[in-house]
Design a protein around this nucleic acid. Structure first.
Lengths: 226, 226, 226, 226
DNA sequence: TATGAATGAGTGTTCATTCAT
DNA sequence: GATGAATGAACACTCATTCAT
């Protein structure tokens, strides 16, 4: 059982083995249900070595969170250039997001499912990263509103410019919704065979971006009469 | 110290005390981190009694999930009548959803955060309930598309009926996104003071419904040229 | 191995069993070398029960220290009445001390040998008890000096009263020496077959009390010329 | 971070560094609580080197005991010449003892506190050294009794020689008491600021030697009537 | 109906010790 | 001469669970 126990690897290599094993098990079973014994075994390493290198279960989990959060952030950032138009930034970012979560399902499980259910230290770490995404999307929405992007797609004449009309607070709500939708679609795409990252991103852009455009043009939704 | 230990209550009362305590603790700490000792103490009951009534920790957790899922489903269902127009059904359902999650944060935590991180038996139970919501929303979207609802709000003449143009598979994706957005906004509303259930529902309707309408009218989003 | 595991005893009984086992093992092996497993086994009890009743190894050790310190203090106090002459108080106290340490060697080992080598919390607890003994002996010495007891044994007429001539600080030094001698003789008496508590006490009274008398009469020792 | 790790020192030097570190840590924390990791770090040396030079933790502790025991014995022996009168030998020996224990508190802690609480191998080693001290003091007392030293201090004419009157067994008891008193006073002197080795030695001589003299002169103490 | 008494099995963590270089 | 890499065995402690009353 467990990986073959090879010998005498340099520290950095062993550490990655341990983190790989830990991300898998934390992702599958959760923080509390994953035992250090099992992690060590799957890493092909004795338990004391795990403690020697990673200090404690908490530190190991934190290290997993940080590694996966950085990887995800990096994957998205590498596809998004600030000089792109907002719409393109969002599109590329979403594609990178869905691609990465599809390729690293356990890492995504650690971030999205497991870390958030654990107490303060872990939930906070991932909340901070998520807050950055929210802020990024909020800025994108505001930028698009400011630049009148939503009206530019041909149907409305560029002459009549609606004022931005979008308070920051409302944009934050939309960003929250958009990110939540993305998280949900990531799980859906991973669980539904045949749904690619490209399709998931397209679905979300259709759902969200078009809706925002509609809104920008003044067609705000209002509750139906009781 | 825990709750005051009163004596000789009928079984049903005791069981509710236990479930209340369990939902609180499972919601706060998670399934594994919540101990039966603590649950019994908070319920004001001895531990063997918990086992006598609820059999095991797994069964207790399942009972919590079922109770909270039923409560949430009931809260939504009670506000939604099948004879309402689809838009109204969604609006009322969302309001009920946001209201209920705001009033029962621990129950919602059990369903949304904790149950999904645990293995097969629990995650499946809540997944089934969630699937029902998704299916419901999918039907709403399809119904709206079929009835041309999105065009009805005055701007387009009811005469020219667009064909449905919305394959079920695509509607399911939208539903997934909409539900994910709702879940995200529920947490956001609970964490952000001053955001009411009404506002959260409005934000989501604006974000989603208006977007859907835009889409229905043929203004589908397509990826920008690289 | 281990005691026969009898069943269903009331808590107080079990606690004494545990303390008995713990005092034995702590006394023989020391705090760190005694394992909770071994203590539980010798007490005829499972390990969780030890934790249920005594909380932790530290608390268990503290409980041992307190129990044995109280027993020793009580044993001595029960033989010493404040209305006795100082000399008699010391004599009776020492006899009680040597008797008790002979009858409870492990308890004495816990107090004298083991507790003092452990860190702050434990060493302090026993140091406080020892300080009480020192203070008691100091008062005895001062009282004897004040009352001129040392001159009363016939050789000097009671008429000529020497002034106390004994500063408190010096009395404390003597008390420290006397108590140290007593501790040493307790181990010696326990290790040397045929030495009774009575004999040990007599030896110490001869060694110390007579010497004090000599000193009181003005025959102070002074260093020999180099 | 521990001592600076300098390179390539001769073996004897490294060994002393290790023993220094070990004596400090064993003295402060005790045998079991001091870890080889910490010792190696404080010695500025890698752990395998400690094993290469000192074989095992037990051997290392033994080496500490032997080094400190030898140092203490040597310190005392160097001040005591067999041709001195017994009283002077004791006085000089005590002064050397108090001086050394004051200057090497950790070494003294290893010998007096830590080694005696550990099992057979260590306690025996230090017990053997202590037995030598006891034997030495016993001989001193017997010699003084034989030579009538106690009567020589002027008050009694040297003409009338009391017979020794001191059985060896009784002398051993006095020696045990005296050494115990010395050990106690050593700790007291170290813990009480302002008490010098000279003062501690004087206190003990006053307490013990004068008492012995009193005894020799036939004024034996006898228990008071009940 | 309800509980005090009790435990088997497992957890995270540490330590003395060795090997390969 | 000296060390980075590695582990078997143990430790304190906790938990879900049951029995006897």
């Amino acid at each position: 059982m467990g990986a073959v126990r090879t010998k005498r690897k340099p520290r950095a290599v062993r550490e990655q083995q341990m983190l790989d094993a830990a991300v898998q098990l934390f992702g599958q079973r959760g923080y509390m249900a994953a035992s250090m014994d099992e992690i060590a075994e799957r890493a092909g390493v004795s338990k004391p070595l795990v403690y020697l290198y990673l200090n404690s279960k908490e530190d190991l989990f934190s290290a997993c969170i940080r590694r996966e959060a950085t990887a995800l952030t990096e994957a998205v950032r590498s596809q998004v250039r600030p000089d792109m138009p907002a719409e393109r930034q969002l599109w590329e970012g979403l594609r990178a997001f869905f691609t990465h979560t599809a390729q690293h399902p356990e890492g995504w499980a650690v971030l999205h499912r497991q870390a958030r259910t654990q107490g303060e230290p872990f939930a906070d770490e991932v909340a901070a990263v998520r807050a950055e995404f929210i802020a990024f999307v909020t800025q994108l929405i505001l930028a698009a509103a400011r630049d009148g992007v939503f009206c530019a797609r041909g149907d409305t004449g560029p002459g009549e410019r609606h004022e931005p009309a979008l308070p920051e607070h409302e944009a934050a709500g939309f960003a929250e919704a958009l990110v939540g939708a993305a998280e949900s679609l990531a799980a859906w795409a991973n669980a539904t065979p045949g749904v690619t990252a490209h399709q998931a991103a397209t679905t979300l852009m259709n759902f969200a971006w078009a809706g925002l455009g509609n809104l920008m043009e003044g067609r705000a939704w209002s509750p139906p009469a009781a």
